[in-house]
C-alpha cells in the first residue's frame, strides 16, 4: 500500500459526503443532483479499488468497472427522463414535481 488504507477510505468518505451534500443541497436542479450521485458513486469506486489493492485481489476493480458501467446506463436514462420532463414542465427544479403528495 502506498498510503494506509484508512486514508484512502477517509478520502472516499469525504467524496461520498460531498456528493450527498450536493444531492441534498441542490434540490433546485436535477442535473446537479445527478452530479452529486455520480460523486457518491465515485467514492464507492475508490473504496472498491482501495480494497482491491489491499487484498491483492481483482474483485474490487471489477466491481469498480461495473459501477462505472452501471452509472453510465443510469445517467443516460436519467438525463433522458430529465429532458422528457423538462419538455412538459419547463423546469429542472426537482421540488416543482410535487403534484402528488400526502
Amino acid at each position: 500500500m502506498i498510503v494506509p488504507l484508512a486514508h484512502v477510505l477517509i478520502l472516499a468518505g469525504i467524496i461520498f459526503a460531498l456528493g450527498l451534500a450536493c444531492v441534498i443541497a441542490w434540490r433546485t436542479n436535477v442535473i446537479m443532483m445527478l452530479i452529486g450521485i455520480e460523486i457518491m458513486l465515485n467514492a464507492a469506486m475508490l473504496v472498491a479499488v482501495g480494497g482491491s489493492r489491499l487484498w491483492g485481489a481483482t474483485d474490487g476493480q471489477v466491481f469498480a468497472l461495473m459501477i462505472m458501467a452501471m452509472t453510465s446506463a443510469e445517467v443516460s436514462l436519467a438525463l433522458a427522463l430529465v429532458v422528457y420532463l423538462h419538455r412538459r414542465k419547463k423546469t429542472v427544479n426537482a421540488d416543482e414535481f410535487d403534484s402528488m403528495k400526502g
Binding site: 475508490l46 479499488v49 482491491s52 476493480q61
Partner: peptide
C-alpha cells in the same frame, strides 16, 4: 481520482 486509481494499482479502472 483516475490517477489515484492508477497509484492503487488499477490502471484499467483509471483509464476507464
Amino acid at each position: 481520482l483516475a490517477v489515484i486509481f492508477y497509484l492503487l494499482g488499477a490502471p484499467l479502472v483509471a483509464v476507464f
